[in-house]
Design a protein around this nucleic acid. Structure first.
Lengths: 202, 202
DNA sequence: GCATCTATATACCGCTCGGTATGGAAATGG
DNA sequence: CCATTTCCATACCGAGCGGTATATAGATGC
């Protein structure tokens, strides 16, 4: 991540960039990119604005680094999910991972990606495209996994792997929307169970 | 809707409130509540700010009236969908209605409700709650319809009508997210087909 | 101890936000 | 024709936005 660490000349900074970034991620996750103000960010991070700009660049760069952290810390279950042995097992692990992400910690909240894609409506097109691109690369891995699954007979020939991936993503994104709208963990769990109950194939 | 129409004394207004409201709806639909600025709204509506405030109250009141119009004009398919003869037919009509809504007119865009629920992250809690409440009343009708469907044997006893309704809503909300993320109409249509293909029961 | 370099704190920048005060133009009822 | 009423255009309000200039405080290498 190389975060502007320099040689020992001059006064060393008094805060831990990793901790500050983690705090920033919480704010972005709660408020979205545009909804998070620099004032709220700096307060949560425990630093002042000049320190933030010196260390992270600007708001957009900070958000990208927060996205990196989010993928690394919160979305790591995706990679392991894709290594399950059947398509249904992959789906189950993805669904349960998303469920855990949205029911854990403070209160229910949607996936950061969903929030960012939907909420960047004004002049943050760059951010929106960034999130969409990351999502696309994630979906690509999922499609490839389902193509293999199809070859292995996990689900009927009539089903298109790309369509199945898009469908599963839609359910998870919808779960995020409902989490943000105040659904209870039980309701979200029901959603997972229902999706698995109707899942085509093994 | 009674929109401050008064007796014939004084100069009559020079614009049509219905047309102005329709224009406002387009802006809210594209930008979300917080993303829509009064400047963009007034420009699209073809009126000035004092005229807007005199006729509609304030931004929040304007949004509520736009929501009314949205439900009346764009969500009318829901009511007719619930009158289909089987649960699957209801689901199909709902899905195809949502699809038409999100692929029509200018470019793909999510359901206004989804946008509003996810995007109101800062200090527009009132708006968010309003949208959530409306969605809840809509979902309630859907649950009741599915309870009847279950009694009529449209799907297995093991399936909870409320869970089925939440699941179907999740798919449609996810479809909205993907529409907002730039999915093509063909991809969204695939989503509908996939959901119907795995639909439990008749 | 000194010169150098850098982090911090404060105050400030231009801009946009939602909302409004004001003054003149226009249409009405009498 | 006049008084009244209402609409419209402009300019403006305080507040918050992302971002920065400045000055002081503090840690380093020599």
């Amino acid at each position: 991540m190389e975060m502007a660490v320099q040689s020992g000349r001059g006064r060393p900074r008094e805060f831990d960039p990793e901790e500050a970034l983690a705090a920033a991620l919480q704010v972005f996750w709660l408020r979205g990119y545009e909804g998070a103000s620099m004032a709220e960010l700096t307060e949560a991070m425990g630093i002042t604005k000049p320190s933030l700009y010196a260390c992270f660049g600007n708001k957009e760069a900070l958000f990208r680094k927060a996205l990196d952290l989010y993928e690394r810390d919160k979305l790591c279950y995706v990679k392991s999910a894709l290594q399950e042995t059947t398509a249904k097992a992959v789906a189950e692990k993805l669904l349960r991972g998303a469920l855990a992400l949205q029911t854990g910690e403070p209160d229910p909240r949607a996936c950061l990606g969903v929030i960012s894609m939907v909420a960047c409506t004004t002049h943050a097109d760059t951010i929106k495209e960034e999130v969409i691109a990351r999502r696309a690369s994630s979906e690509k891995a999922m499609v490839e996994r389902f193509e293999r699954a199809k070859a292995e007979g996990d689900f009927p020939e009539s089903i298109d792997p790309a369509a199945l991936a898009a469908y599963l993503n839609a359910v998870m994104q919808g779960m995020g929307v409902q989490a943000g709208a105040g659904a209870t963990p039980e309701q979200l769990a029901q959603l997972v169970d229902m999706t698995l109950a109707v899942w085509p194939g093994r």
